[in-house]
């Protein structure tokens, strides 16, 4: 099935204005009354938790109310509908998208993707042998504004990661790229080569919900600058900056008023069907190649202080 990846995450939140400001400061663009989007049109929808247009909340109280996947075309949408209406209710909504529950109870939507073809260039890095950025192009400036390129992935806390993996693999054609033993798989749908658009973490049932979500940026410099901008605006880092091992993506996570962490990421590995998945125990040593800690700008200057 040619599912490309998440197009939109829909939240029912406690503090709408705090979430709207957070989304603006993160770097998303406002679109209409409820949406905040990346360059390619993927994004999030922010509504009050008592908004009657929202699907029912999970019993856990998670603010994530729906994950909407973008698919390549109407034929794929029809294929998903035919596959899943064999054993569950599949609603066709007014906008032509379909809505259903996965085997864990998460509300899913599928639509012909909204992703626009825009310039999503990667950060260019020069080396001794390769001048990738071009002569006389500087790599960084204080005034640079990081671009939020596209919705990258969502991570769910789930009570049964085996059941979750089976649903996404057998019913929707996702592929497991890597796995944390006893915790859960990293998965990608067939329409993308990104290492993962979905990751499951097995937890007790009362935790079911969204652990974090993230958008891709152009490279590590944008992750650092976007994160620094958030710190300067008073937002509190949760984890990072650093670089994951599985997926190789650079990361920086921030706590958020969405009831989950919101991450910046960049430079994720790309895989095709020839990839052989890896497996490792989850823990600090396997979760990142390195982990850094923010500190305020500082510089060494000159020689030792004058003698008193």
């Amino acid at each position: 099935m040619n599912i490309i990846g998440p197009d939109k995450l829909i939240f029912g939140v406690d503090d709408v204005e705090a979430c709207r400001q957070f989304a603006r400061d993160y770097g998303l663009a406002e679109q209409g009354e409820h949406s905040f989007v990346a360059l390619d049109g993927t994004g999030i929808e922010v509504r009050s938790r008592d908004d009657e247009s929202l699907p029912a909340a999970l019993a856990s109280g998670s603010m994530l109310r729906k994950t909407v996947y973008g698919v390549a075309d109407q034929a794929t949408l029809d294929q998903i509908k035919a596959e899943l209406e064999t054993d569950r209710d599949v609603k066709v909504l007014e906008d032509g998208s379909i809505e259903l529950l996965d085997d864990l109870g998460f509300v899913l939507g599928f639509q012909v993707t909204v992703r626009k073809a825009v310039d999503l260039a990667a950060e260019r890095v020069n080396s001794v042998a390769q001048c990738n950025r071009g002569i006389n192009h500087v790599g960084v400036s204080k005034d640079h504004k990081p671009s939020i390129q596209t919705l990258s992935h969502v991570v769910y806390f789930v009570p049964d990661p085996v059941k979750a993996e089976a649903f996404y693999e057998k019913r929707l054609g996702f592929v497991t790229t890597d796995r944390f033993t006893g915790v859960g798989p990293f998965m990608r749908p067939a329409g993308t080569q990104d290492h993962h658009t979905l990751f499951f973490i097995g937890t007790p049932p009362h935790m079911q919900g969204c652990e974090h979500f993230t958008f891709h940026l152009s490279g590590p410099t944008d992750v650092m600058q976007a994160g620094t901008n958030m710190v300067n605006k008073g937002y509190q880092s949760f984890w990072g900056p650093g670089r994951h091992l599985f997926g190789s993506n650079w990361f920086w996570y921030f706590k958020s008023p969405f009831g989950c962490n919101m991450e910046f990421d960049a430079d994720m590995d790309q895989h095709d069907d020839s990839w052989t998945g890896r497996e490792a125990m989850m823990g600090p040593d396997n979760s990142q190649a390195f982990l850094l800690q923010y500190r305020e700008k500082w510089a060494p200057a000159g020689g030792p202080p004058p003698k008193a």
């Binding site: 406690d14 935790m207 652990e211 706590k255 958020s256 989950c260």
Partner: peptide, 17 residues
């Protein structure tokens, strides 16, 4: 200082709600 929910009914951890 953002330790409470919008109605100041509960203390909130923003990491996972």
């Amino acid at each position: 200082h953002m330790y409470l929910d919008n109605q100041s009914q509960h203390i909130v951890c923003a990491a996972h709600g």
